[in-house]
Design a protein around this nucleic acid. Sequence first.
DNA 1: CTGAAAGCGCTAACAG
DNA 2: CTGTTAGCGCTTTCAG
Lengths: 339, 339
Amino acid sequence: MSRNRVTSAEVAKRAGVSQSAVSRTFTPGASASPKTAEKVRRAATELGYRPNVLARAMVSGKSRIIGLVVAYLENQFYPQALEKLSTQLQQRGYHLLIFTADQAMGNVDQVVEEILDYQVDGIIAASVDMSSNLAKRCRAAGVPMVLFNRSQDDPTMSAVTSDNHAGGRKVAEFLLAGGHRKIAHIAGWDETSTQRDREAGFVAALTAAGVPLHARGSGDFTMEKAAEAARAICAADPPDAIFVTNDHMALAVMDTLRFELGLDVPGDVSVVGYDDVPAASWPSYRLTTVRQPANRMVAKTVEILLDQIENATARTRRIAIDGPMILRTSARIPKGWNT
Amino acid sequence: MSRNRVTSAEVAKRAGVSQSAVSRTFTPGASASPKTAEKVRRAATELGYRPNVLARAMVSGKSRIIGLVVAYLENQFYPQALEKLSTQLQQRGYHLLIFTADQAMGNVDQVVEEILDYQVDGIIAASVDMSSNLAKRCRAAGVPMVLFNRSQDDPTMSAVTSDNHAGGRKVAEFLLAGGHRKIAHIAGWDETSTQRDREAGFVAALTAAGVPLHARGSGDFTMEKAAEAARAICAADPPDAIFVTNDHMALAVMDTLRFELGLDVPGDVSVVGYDDVPAASWPSYRLTTVRQPANRMVAKTVEILLDQIENATARTRRIAIDGPMILRTSARIPKGWNT
DNA sequence: CTGAAAGCGCTAACAG
DNA sequence: CTGTTAGCGCTTTCAG
């Protein structure tokens, strides 16, 4: 009942060749005669041999494993991204090693140290914030890192996000065009770039139109807090529209408005979210939102990371991908409005 | 810009001790004098040294990585389980290496071979079906495996599920007590144990009461197909209750009934699901369902797997954890009904 | 093209 | 308790 894997040496013996010959036939850029390769391959299948990835990693310095730091998966946007990330990486011969970091516990840095222990070839930090001190540590270790759905102040880190500022602006313009003038905002965490950028774009457009923000609450990126914020905001002078920083919270806001406060959406108040998670399109919600193009974000993330890994490209890249507004029925649609 | 990690040898030199001394101070069950340990630890922090997990894995035979095979993460039950799994494992010093397997592509076996290449200490197969041939392969390799939320016919594989048969029975009894007599079922894939067991328990109770199944449709575990099935079932002689194999599909069924077919839930038809995913409790749905105790299922999975890994317990265990019915408002509640 | 030999960084006997 | 000595399984010079 112990680890009894077949080794290259055993295959070599059976095939009547040297151990290095075996190694060569299993190494992509190798030099082995068709004849030898054939003998080896036969012996290998007979014995059920497969190269030990870890041993290979030790000597080659390439583990073909990518560390993924992720916070919480309740917001549907992340499992979706995780799945795509895993699939695309797997196709290229890499695999994800998962590390969950309690955003709250602020143990992200600690976790990254652990990741480094595994000699990962690269790191993807999905929506967690990390010290730029840490970035230095990774760079020193020669391990590339890319931030997914978060961009740090530290411009030396590669990052892929959607164009949050533009997205926020679009929402404001859409709401304004719809005739709304008592526009509220329910935020996530102020510490995150997604929150800051979306709100900045949103408020900028409002300001440009000379319309002040009617009210503001914080939902902490959770449904419970978002619901509370919605209650608080509507208790005083109810808004006629609410922009919620992400769909996950927006869903809770819609439910609170409708089932608890007895308000009609969009009759009494329009609601707009951000992300376009699967649930946003469910008939019960039909949430108008700004789509984060998960596919393209993931593809870019993989491209940038593998480029840095395989071509030793030191260049850090920061990308913001534009996403369209998805018009559904949770918000009044201005006449003649096009995307 | 290359891999420049500090090695134990460098720490040894700086601390003025042997390389093995360094190894010992970083190995839990080691013998090192407080004095030496102190010197080593200082030198280590000064140099920023951390043991190379892969090298350790090579010689010790323990990689402290667990392979997780997972199919699709859209059904909220899985991200939730994944997160808990990762967290609990991480606490015990293990980490998850993710492998996505297209259930449809039937490449599960292929994927497991890949997992084995990484010298994982164990494998968790979350809701995917695998050949018992493969189980043999893992056992031969000395790698324990436990099935999560699926139990195979092959009784040599450890498995953790909820008590699906009992769950199905409960639903039938609940519906029957509620006075329903035209009861339909919308299934997932017939090949899965979850589907078979839930339906078997459900139908058994119906039969015992002398009530035939009014109609049956297949939803393929997807929302689209489930919606179609709902349409088809209601086109002929509409049922007064539908038991849907999982919440993910049940949500779609509710939406279809309400917004497309104009039916009232539970006024015209009661809907019951299975899993108790987060969305089931959202105000728009308030879906009556059978809870799969994710926490306990995960805890058991981790316990069984680590037991087999750390204590070389060969004993395979198959566990079905009972879950309560969660009464909400998508189904009529019989008078005086208690859990 | 091929075999022999030297490690990758670390743990685990083995003597002291 | 400590240092020395073997390897873990594999890739990679280095001669041939």
